[in-house]
């Protein structure tokens, strides 16, 4: 397997793993946030507006971890720095 193939294959693999593993933690965290917010709203329906507002902020903060994983995946897929380097090396070798 030459370098370009290796980098391409490993990039796809890494992108999939990045989203898969990076999605576990935020998913658990968001479920936790939602469950606790629902419990709090069931106990204190008067505070529902306040709880919802805080829940949105907390959700967005938890979610940002998943978004980091997503951004890294996008970088691997569409703006891979090693890919251009490998292509350049291959072109030089071909000349």
């Amino acid at each position: 397997m030459d370098t370009v193939t290796l980098i391409g294959a490993l990039s796809v693999l890494a992108a999939g793993l990045c989203v898969a593993i990076g999605g576990i933690g935020p998913a658990l965290g968001e479920g936790n946030v939602a469950a606790n917010a629902l419990r709090a709203m069931a106990q204190q329906p008067d505070e529902a507006g306040n709880i919802t507002k805080t829940m949105y902020i907390a959700m967005a903060m938890v979610e940002s971890t998943a978004i980091y994983a997503f951004v890294v995946t996008m970088m691997i897929m569409y703006a891979n720095p090693f890919w251009n380097y490998a292509v350049q090396v291959a072109e030089k070798a071909a000349q």
């Binding site: 967005a60 979610e63 940002s64 978004i67």
Partner: peptide
């Protein structure tokens, strides 16, 4: 950093 990437990532993921 997280402020910028959260908004960007959410909007981009919707488009994708």
């Amino acid at each position: 950093f997280s402020l910028a990437f959260r908004l960007y990532g959410n909007m981009l993921s919707g488009a994708i």
